Amino acid sequence: MKLSADLKALQKRIGHEFSRPELLVRAVTHSSMSSPTRDDNQRLEFLGDRVLGLVMAEALLAQDRKATEGQLAPRYNALVRKEACADVAKEIALGDALKLGRSEMMSGGRRKLALLGDAMEALIAAVYLDAGFEPAKQMVVRLWGDRVNRVEDDARDPKTSLQEWAQARGLKPPTYEIVSRSGPDHAPVFQIAARLDNGKTAEATDTSKRKAEQAAAKALLGQLQS
């Protein structure tokens, strides 16, 4: 199978040349482009999630040989969650190579966090099926870079930390409210307010509702701890 120029470029960015290029094509094919003769990447996504999990579990054990399971679990979650996969996908411009249906493309599919994260997992599975675990592991370790070393800073979810802060002081869990939504449907911008029942509040803006909530929680924590 002859690869298109964008897929050849993607191979160079990930450092793996496929001996079975059909796997790469499948990894970048969204369900909106699937057909009886064209498989999408959903099954690869399922496998890639497991390969990524094993790679990250091994990396964390090697990075901190004294960490307990309770310490390792949040670090692991921070490394394998969809946001982390999407961030890596953005760094390698995976969105540029995705095969999307017209409606998904028009709605900004190449920039959607969930879609990018799924495709990144599918790409990991494609390398695993093409060359085995070690090449897939090497690619993941290379692409995730220093995330493993700085994962302690990323492992504490601001929303979880804020909820724990509130509960420790006998307050109700924080609430999150959409203050405004702007921009076109394919690239919305959310302004979110995080509120506590003691009257404290903070706002943040992002193109992802979840990220805006996290940023608002982080801003509110900053106020409370200053």
Rank of each mutant, 00 (worst) to 15 (best):
R150E: 10
K82V: 06
S35P: 13
K211T: 15
L23Q: 02
R20D: 04
I14R: 02
L116Y: 04
A204W: 09
G183D: 09
V189T: 06
R111I: 08
A131H: 14
A194Y: 04
E134G: 00
E22F: 00
T207I: 15
V127P: 01
G170H: 10
E203A: 08
S107A: 08
A67R: 12
T160F: 04
K90Q: 11
G109V: 14
D87T: 11
R147N: 15
T207E: 13
D154I: 14
E58L: 15
E17I: 01
R210T: 14
L113D: 12
D146R: 09
D87C: 06
L113T: 15
R110P: 04
P21D: 09
S19D: 07
R102P: 13
L79A: 01
M120H: 09
K8G: 02
V140S: 09
G183K: 06
M33T: 08
S35D: 11
S208P: 15
D6S: 15
Y76M: 06
T205M: 14
V88G: 05
V151W: 02
A155K: 14
A126W: 01
T175E: 13
E164P: 01
K159R: 15
Q42N: 08
Q138E: 11
G101E: 10
F133C: 14
I92G: 07
A59P: 06
G222H: 13
